[in-house]
Design a protein around this nucleic acid. Structure first.
Length: 648
RNA sequence: GCCGACGUAGCUCAGGGGUAGAGCGUUUCCUUGGUAAGGAAGAGGUCACGGGUUCAAAUCCCGUCGUUGGCUCCA
């Protein structure tokens, strides 16, 4: 008999050799039907793996991430089988589960694969799934494993196996298909009821561009047809909210081939939106003791040699601009911090002056590879809501927490309610990748963790994700569709103060090194606007809307009254325009709806006589008739719901 | 940068070796209106760009540029 401990702490006894499935069955028939995978003593096992020792068991269903992983990993096997059957001679490589689905990388030889082939492959997969073939693991010797794949002339699997230790190698079989596999599968293929191939892309073997290029087929699968339908609907919704589409429709920004790829052009409405965001942050920063600075768009190459950026990124950046006569070299600035360091250096500081907080909406230029450009989220020229805080080591904890406050204020005002923090530390086994002393790293890492704790942030620690010059705290927000985005970032830096020989005079009358904090709550204006667009679907918070209301006249008889109303609105600082074209009310409303204008103020004979407006909200809600002053109250109430004052 | 897909009117897209298409928008005229498209007429295209094949290319082929899904990278 063995003792199996379940997650709730209860212990059950089973015959040795009982499987996780048996355990599930002893709990309930429903669980037995739905159990997908399991972990025994923290090791992934199949639901059919006999348990022979005491241990603790966790059972997973589709509702667990681990269950989904097993589900999708198993689906990758089915995909591989389908590809093998449809395209004899394909060489299989790897096929893992990913965040949303799975992929399989195959070497198709001379063949190509396109979306028109998907239907055929999906049908084949479903046919295999319907066969309810059991997945079963078996151990093989290294020699046998190698022989199999050598016979198939598959250098990829051979390479994988050569890196494995004899005795640990397992194959997974289902139906007529066999694959090298570590394990973690569904009980049988029949669990997969819906399959959709999403895309096909090139991918290098082991992610190295020197290696042969493979064909990667992406897919997703579900236990119910309905789940697939919902997933596709979510994708549709995401498409509707795509910032590139909305940016065009709402006339916020554009790109021009002539200007150059990755270089966004802000149209008047987009520029107004962006300016409003900037002013919002400027006001909060002013309260928090920041001072604005301004620096040029280029800097001498020497500046970046000093900062260390040239050595690290110079070759992969826009190349230097040279002067015609002297041959001096200048770089488009990829960062604002070197400039800000020199601003710090312009004056001699006492510890009494610190912290200094220099802020700038600084436009920077980075050479992003052409394939990496994407709408406003990946561009070659963008504006960071940058600031650098220079403080004494003693002030670091406190300053860091103040920055967190500011970031949380920004998120709150813009409707990002779901977010987590990621603390990125250096990889202690790989210290040569980073610059700076152990002591400084320890101090900086502790400061970040302490601040995250003190502020009650929901955070995860990622080792090895730090910047080369210091650890950081990144904020990941979840948008309305549940997608995660990295937004604001706060980074501690002991390196640049060293390189730029920044100093302040301490109370001991000695020169000391300040610590630097880099921070950008938005990240960049471009990326932030893109994310905000997708989060809100273009229905920005009222305070941010480029235009908050439109006055719609029922006929030209009310043009004059419309102008009066507009003037009153302006007195109440409500951003509005008048639509007094000779169009029908139906059309005017439709167009205003499509422009996502929050309020429509309709005026006709009745309103003109009473000195009122009839208020329709975006989406159709009728708020009835009221005076402009009453309407201004409605607007202010709504704004105050989201836009609070920043309290220091 | 690499692999795949795409590039036709301002926008969304259909078509496809033999005179360039639709809807929306735009312009003009009519309509003076009550909560998501009033009616009519007109204008608008070197079918991304450059080569090639062909009697004939927007269509087929090659290249370039751009967009896009991935890969790689991301101070």
């Amino acid at each position: 008999m063995i003792k199996v401990t379940l997650p709730d702490g209860s212990v059950k006894e089973f015959e040795s050799g009982a499987t996780p499935f048996d355990v599930a069955n002893s709990i309930s028939a429903g669980l037995a039907r739905n159990v997908i995978s399991a972990k025994y003593n923290n090791t992934t096992v199949e639901t059919t793996t006999p348990l022979t020792t005491d241990g603790s068991l966790v059972l997973y269903t589709w509702n667990d991430d681990e269950g989904k992983t097993a589900f999708w990993h198993s689906s990758a096997h089915i995909l591989a089988q389908a590809l093998e059957e449809l395209y004899p001679g394909v060489k299989l490589t790897i096929g893992p589960a990913i965040d949303k689905g799975f992929y399989y990388d195959v070497d198709l030889g001379e063949r190509t694969l396109g979306e028109h082939d998907f239907k055929k492959i999906e049908d084949k997969m479903l046919e295999i799934a319907r066969g309810k073939h059991e997945f079963s693991m078996r151990s093989v010797s290294k020699a046998d494993a190698l022989e199999l794949y050598k016979k198939q002339d598959n250098p990829y699997k051979v390479e994988l196996i050569e890196n494995l230790e004899d005795g640990t190698i397992t194959f997974c079989d289902h139906d007529s298909f066999t694959d090298l596999c570590r394990g973690g599968h569904l009980p049988n293929t029949g669990f997969v009821k819906a399959v959709k191939l999403m895309s096909v892309a090139g991918a290098y073997w082991r992610g190295d561009e020197k290696n042969p290029q493979l064909t990667r087929v992406y897919g997703i699968s579900f236990p119910k047809q309905k789940d697939l339908k919902e997933y596709l609907e979510l994708l549709e919704e995401a498409k509707k909210r795509d910032h590139r589409k909305l940016g065009k429709e709402l006339q916020l920004f554009t790109f021009s081939q002539k200007v150059g790829q990755g270089l966004p052009l802000w149209l008047p409405k987009g520029a107004a939106l962006r300016e409003r965001l900037e002013n919002f942050l400027k006001a909060a920063q002013k309260k928090a003791g920041y001072e604005m600075v301004v620096t040029p768009h280029i800097g001498q190459k020497e500046l970046y040699v000093t900062s260390g950026h040239y050595a690290k990124y110079g070759a992969d950046s826009f190349q230097p601009i040279t002067t015609p006569a002297e041959g001096e070299e200048f770089l488009l600035k990829p960062m604002n911090c070197p400039h800000h360091c020199e601003i710090y250096n312009a004056v001699q500081w006492s510890y009494r002056d610190l912290p200094k907080r220099f802020a700038e909406f600084g436009t920077v230029y980075r050479y992003e590879q052409s394939g990496e450009l994407h709408g406003l989220t990946r561009v070659r020229g963008f504006t960071q809501d940058d600031a650098h805080i220079f403080c004494t080591p003693d002030q670091l904890d406190d300053e860091f927490m103040k920055v967190i406050d500011l970031v949380l204020y920004v998120f709150g005002s813009l409707g990002f309610e779901n977010f987590t923090a990621q603390v990125s530390l250096r990889d202690p086994d790989n210290k040569e990748k980073y610059i700076g002393s152990d002591e400084n790293w320890a101090k900086a890492e502790n400061a970040i963790i302490n601040a995250a704790k003190a502020k009650g942030l929901n955070y995860v620690i990622e080792t090895g994700e730090a910047a080369f010059y210091g650890p950081k705290l990144d904020f990941m927000v979840k948008d309305a569709l549940g997608r995660s985005w990295q937004l604001g970032t706060i980074q501690v830096d002991y390196n640049l103060p060293e390189r730029f020989e920044l100093t302040y005079k301490g109370s001991d009358n000695e020169e000391h090194r300040p610590v630097m904090i880099h921070r950008a709550p938005f990240g960049s204006m471009e990326r932030f606007v893109a994310i905000l667009l997708e989060h809100t679907g273009g229905n920005f918070p009222l305070w941010l809307m480029p235009q908050q209301a439109i006055v719609l006249t029922l006929s030209e008889n009310y043009e004059k009254y419309a102008q009066n109303v507009l003037e009153l609105l302006e007195n109440h600082e409500i951003r509005a325009t008048v639509d007094d074209r000779g169009e029908t009310m139906g059309r005017k409303i439709r167009e205003a709806e499509m422009q996502k204008l929050p309020f429509m103020l309709i005026i006709g004979e009745k309103e003109a006589n009473d000195g009122t407006v009839s208020v329709r909200k975006h989406g159709g809600e009728d708020l009835g008739t009221m005076t402009v002053a009453e309407f201004a109250e409605v607007v202010n109430t709504e704004i105050n719901k989201t836009l609070k004052k920043f309290e220091v």
